[in-house]
Design a protein around this nucleic acid. Structure first.
Length: 246
DNA sequence: GTTGAGCGTT
């Protein structure tokens, strides 16, 4: 019963994998099993967790036996509040068996004949249901977006950007950047290693991108004092202003 | 004690 995720896949001859997203990090397979099992025959529930910490990653895979039930579960559970969080249920797209997955359905490549008694009943209504689901999903998405903007506008943006960058940008790009940064830091570090680091720091010829720390310390009092000073010096170094003013 | 728009194990 609660051995989900502990053992390998029981039987994936023909099952339908559903991806459950946005679940709380404390939700376990045992919590999802009854929920999904209520709408159909759940063959397996698996929640990937971090190898290092072992914590849930925030999503789960629910394997259904029949497509009808899986589809129904998607429509019924998608957008449902579980553990205080709105979960998202959709057909699994990627995965180890992605090559065999066809629109969420795992095609059996074994010599087993597809002449199963199981009738999938591909009624034409599916289309309507699909459309309806899409519409509902969009609505939910918008709602969620508003909620995020209302609550985690600043934090969300920052986190999302970082997360996306990691996902959208290849790793070598980041590695290169990091390497450069490290090189720069090391180079400067060596310079600082000089017998007279204070003297080098005094003139401060760094452009600013080199070390934000120094920039912050410097920019705190430099721009405010230098900006007006330079302007006045450049514009009217002569007491002419006094004459015109008076 | 935390997080989040993301696709999986023997």
């Amino acid at each position: 019963m609660s051995h989900f995720g502990r053992a390998g896949p029981p039987d994936i001859r023909d099952t339908f994998s559903l991806l459950v997203l946005n679940i709380t990090f404390r939700t376990t397979a045992d919590d999802l099993f009854p929920l999904f099992d209520k709408y159909g025959k759940v063959v397996d529930v698996f929640i990937p967790r971090d190898r290092r910490t072992g914590e849930s990653r925030g999503f789960a895979f629910v394997r259904y036996k029949y497509a009808d039930e899986a589809q129904k579960a998607v429509e019924k559970l998608d957008g449902k509040i579980v553990d205080g969080r709105e979960i998202m249920v959709q057909f699994a797209k990627y995965g180890p068996n992605a090559e065999r997955i066809h629109k969420g359905r795992i095609i059996e490549t074994t010599s087993k004949t597809s002449g199963r008694s199981r009738s999938r009943s591909p009624r034409p209504r599916y289309r309507d249901e699909n459309r309806d689901r899409d519409y509902r999903r969009r609505s939910r998405s918008r709602s969620r977006e508003r909620y995020d903007h209302d609550r985690y506008r600043r934090r969300e943006r920052d986190r999302r950007r970082r997360s996306r960058s990691r996902s959208a940008s290849p790793d070598h790009h980041k590695d290169r950047w990091r390497g450069r940064h490290e090189d720069d830091r090391r180079s400067r570090s060596r310079s600082n290693d000089s017998p007279h680091p204070r003297r080098t720091l005094s003139p401060r010829r760094t452009p600013g991108v080199d070390s934000p720390d120094a920039q912050t310390s410097n920019g705190a009092s430099v721009p405010k004092t230098v900006l007006p000073h330079t302007r006045v010096d450049s514009q009217s170094p002569t007491p002419q202003r006094s004459d015109a003013d008076e």
